[in-house]
Nucleic acid binder design. Structure first.
Length: 220
DNA sequence: CTTTGGATCGTCT
DNA sequence: GACGATCCAAAGG
């Protein structure tokens, strides 16, 4: 009943050393790992530095975005909306400030730790469905306990237990493509990539509003 | 099921 | 002083 035991290998530096538009779809079905926690990457977005009005790096280097200007293969973690962390894999040659935003993973292991990181300390009431665990850039950071402390972590060296690994599962034959979520500039560019049909993909373009919409909890 | 508004603060102008 | 690469609860139909 169990699938084949596949060797997991940490993605090498060269994997990240390319244009974000090429690296982003290649990250689909790779595995984000931190300690016991792991999840298959099912949704990402490419951000292309000076080429990209929606990128934090568009207007040049600052203290906040410095990691993006560094070497590929590191984690760029930023703080937004006064309460959320989001994580990117830095790619492209050093200095170009390209990055791939990790928007959703399907949990594979360490589910208890993830649930604890997400929902410990909440009051009485129903425990949210596991669908809400890691479907969204800030949700997955919370589930993996990724914060500003992890900004700059080298994913190739497994800094702080963080890495992206390949278990031999290729990206989907047909990659889902859409506009990027939650931005105002250049939102029409088709630089969001996802695994079609994966329940943990965070949002689809809403039919009414055009804004991302999660399937209702309980539906599949 | 859809839509709205609140939370909350670092960063850049 | 304005605004986020967001999430959630609550209200509305």
């Amino acid at each position: 009943m169990t699938g084949p035991v596949r060797r997991r290998r940490v993605l090498p530096r060269r994997f990240y050393d390319g244009d974000a538009l090429e690296v982003a779809p290649q990250l689909l079905n790779k595995i984000l790992v931190r300690g016991r926690r792991s999840g298959r990457i099912v949704e990402v977005e490419a951000y292309r530095g000076a080429q990209d009005p929606a990128s934090h790096a568009y207007r040049g280097q600052t203290r906040r975005n410095a990691t993006m200007f560094g070497p590929p293969g590191r984690l760029y973690v930023y703080f937004t909306y006064g309460m959320h962390w989001c994580a990117n894999a830095v790619c492209g040659p050093e200095g170009e400030a390209q990055a791939v935003l990790l928007r959703a993973v399907t949990p594979l292991s360490g589910l208890e730790e993830m649930r604890h990181s997400r929902w410990a300390g909440r009051g009485p009431g129903p425990v949210p469905a596991d669908r809400q665990l890691t479907s969204g850039p800030a949700r997955l950071c919370q589930a993996f306990a990724i914060t500003g402390e992890d900004d700059g972590a080298d994913l190739v060296r497994r800094d702080r237990g963080l890495a992206v690994v390949d278990d031999g599962t290729p990206p989907p034959r047909r990659v889902g493509v859409s506009g990027r979520v939650g931005i105002s500039a250049a939102s029409e560019l088709p630089w969001r990539f996802f695994v079609p049909g994966e329940p943990h993909v965070s949002g689809v373009p809403g039919p009414r509003t055009g804004r991302p919409v999660l399937p209702a909890p309980g539906r599949r």
